[in-house]
């Protein structure tokens, strides 16, 4: 199948600084692909090059099989782009704003009017049709900017930090909107420096760091590529030694770490801090085990521990350790 977006050794240099280093990316049609990475990782540079706003130093971009031409016509036709920092024109009404961009894309009169009304409906701004653009809230402006990227009905949408500066409610609305757009058959690439913003809505993601794509794929694939381990954490009140023996003898269990307190992530070798904690927790020990068993195996393991007389206060399945991995990675 032709990839919606395909980059081959895409590189951007500014003088001696390499903003993006040999990016090879394939995004299939109908995907919501999330770029995650700290500021300066090369996300915006990548999006701008795909949008045809920035010329690559090396490498090439193909959109739906078409190679990006030099004057940017291909991307203007196929891509709807929403920059991370966008402005709005003062003294222009909401419908006029969309009408302006529809004119820029050469939409004829009747089609232009129906497109503008349809988009206002889509982004839920019909009640604000005649309001001045500068009077809209940040979330509404964001939706308006998203609508402007849709006037020519592009198959690919590039959204740079679409969720930044939005309150939780607006974020939920944005997520819904993105799902609607995916259902309409659009391929969406978005970027964020906050993982949790994307994890729920993206079907695939790529983690960027220092101009490199460190990992790419579905959530599980990215986790595997980053070497993330699934862990089970047992808070043991009594019978720690017994638990260790059982865990060591269970198929699917790997390395076992013993942590002093259930709330701490620090290994046992670090300074004991139990003195500050309430007595109930003072004697609880956390056993952390690298675990590859399925749900059935997990249930069976817990039942064996309990039957053997190990007093458990909690079991935590730490599957989503991606955020931590991401932080470790980007801190490095």
């Amino acid at each position: 199948m032709t990839a919606a977006i395909e980059t081959t050794n895409l590189t951007k240099r500014y003088g001696r600084t390499v903003a993006l280093d040999q990016l090879n990316l394939r995004v299939q049609p109908g995907t919501i692909y999330g770029f995650i990475g700290p500021n300066g990782a090369g996300k915006t540079t990548t999006l701008r090059m795909v949008a045809g706003l920035l010329e690559p130093s090396a490498g090439q971009v193909r959109l739906l099989g078409e190679r990006l031409d030099r004057d940017g016509r291909t991307s203007q036709r196929l891509v709807g782009y929403m920059p991370d920092f966008f402005g709005v024109y003062d003294d222009l009404r909401v419908w006029e704003y969309l009408d302006f961009f529809a004119r820029c894309h050469n939409l004829p009169g009747a089609k232009r009017r129906s497109t503008v009304e349809g988009l206002l409906e889509l982004v839920d701004l019909t009640p604000k049709r005649d309001a001045f653009v500068q009077s809209l809230s940040r979330g509404m402006q964001q939706r308006l900017c998203l609508a402007h990227a849709l006037v020519h009905d592009p198959p690919i949408l590039l959204l740079d930090e679409p969720a930044s500066g939005l309150d939780p409610r607006a974020r939920v609305e944005l997520r819904e909107l993105l799902r609607t757009l995916r259902d309409m058959g659009k391929t969406i690439i978005l970027s964020s420096h906050i993982l949790s913003e994307l994890a729920e809505v993206c079907t695939e993601m790529g983690i960027m760091q220092g101009g490199h794509l460190v990992a790419s794929g579905t959530l599980a694939e990215v986790q595997r590529q980053l070497g993330g381990e699934r862990q089970l954490r047992f808070s043991v009140l009594r019978g720690v030694e017994q638990a260790r023996v059982i865990l060591a003898g269970t198929a699917g269990a790997g390395r076992i770490d013993q942590l002093e307190i259930d709330t701490s992530h620090s290994p046992i070798t670090s300074e004991p801090t139990t003195a500050h904690l309430p007595e109930l927790h003072a004697s609880a020990t956390t056993l952390s085990v690298v675990w590859s068993g399925d749900a059935e195996a997990t249930a069976s393991l817990i039942s064996r521990l309990v039957t053997a007389g190990v007093a458990l206060t909690s079991v935590v399945d730490e599957t989503n350790d991606l955020e931590e991995l991401f932080l470790q990675l980007t801190a490095a």
């Binding site: 701008r48 949008a51 045809g52 706003l53 940017g72 016509r73 991307s75 203007q76 036709r77 891509v79 782009y81 920059p83 920092f85 966008f86 402005g87 709005v88 024109y89 003062d90 961009f101 820029c104 894309h105 050469n106 900017c145 402007h148």
Partner: peptide, 14 residues
């Protein structure tokens, strides 16, 4: 450029 609308403009076929 100041209003950050220039990118929006040059991303169109204009």
């Amino acid at each position: 450029r100041e209003q950050l609308t220039y990118d929006l403009l040059i991303a169109t076929p204009l």
